[in-house]
Structure formats: C-alpha cells, structure tokens
C-alpha cells in the first residue's frame, strides 16, 4: 500500500535532489514548487539539482527511546545537517561512536536502509550520514 508513497520521493531520498530558486538562489530540500522567500517571482524558476552530499552537524541527539524499526541501532544519532549548499535536513549519523559526534562535525551522505514494512513489505532506502575522515 505504501510503496508508491516512498517510491515517488526516491530522487531526493537516494540522491538529495533539491531545488534552487532562479530568483534569489536559495536552496530548498526537499524540492519546492516555489521559493518560500520569493513566492510569485520564483514560480517556474525553481531549478532541480543534486546536493553534493557534504555538510556539517548543526545539532544532534543520541536517541535512546527509539521507534521499533530502529531497535537494532539503539542508541543511534539523529542530527540536523547543514549542507554545504545551505539547506538543512534531518538524518541519522552512522558508523560513528555517539560520543565522537559534535556540532560542526563534517559528514557526507551515504545510502542505507531506513526501514521496511515488515517481512512481506518493501524496503525503504535513503540517506544517512557518515563522518568525513580526515
């Protein structure tokens, strides 16, 4: 039932497809059909492009009370990432010891399983972030 709901967002979930306003240049992720700053002036001028996938941790939390689909990863790090292009997004930071995460930490996007719809359901894939080493 939910397959199409996840499928239609795949470009942004897999490849961080965003929009840039042709009027003011500000970046929206996920894509928007018009710019929250320029409104009418941006209609028809929102250009789709792919974020390069690198950014910095703006804030984060180590989550202990977790949704059941993330039981195996408990505790995990959820973070707000400020992408180098300017947009912020929310994602897990993985392959890291939670105590090494800090505000300002450099991270890059990777693709991981976000969850599934039970053993008979489809598997959801999307972005998570890993530390940029060195």
């Amino acid at each position: 039932m939910a397959a199409p709901r996840f499928w239609r967002e795949a470009p942004s979930r897999y490849n961080l497809v965003a929009t840039r306003c042709g009027n003011c240049g500000s970046v929206s992720f996920p894509p928007r059909s018009f710019c929250p700053k320029c409104h009418r002036k941006s209609v028809g001028r929102m250009e789709r492009f792919r974020l390069a996938g690198k950014g910095s941790v703006y804030t984060y939390s180590v989550v202990h009370e977790v949704p059941s689909e993330l039981d195996m990863q408990k505790p995990y790090v959820i973070a707000m990432i400020e992408m180098d292009e300017g947009a912020k997004l929310t994602a897990q930071v993985i392959d890291v010891d939670p105590k090494d995460v800090h505000i300002g930490m450099r991270v890059r996007a990777t693709l991981r399983r976000l969850g599934d719809e039970g053993p008979d359901g489809i598997i959801h894939y999307g972005y998570k972030f890993v530390p940029i080493l060195n």
Partner: peptide, 11 residues
C-alpha cells in the same frame, strides 16, 4: 550494520 544490505553495499 543492521541497515546495510547488498543494495547499500553495491551503491
């Protein structure tokens, strides 16, 4: 990791 499989490794 629990969130890795052949899809994520291949990607």
């Amino acid at each position: 990791a629990p969130d890795e499989d052949v899809v994520t490794i291949s990607v």
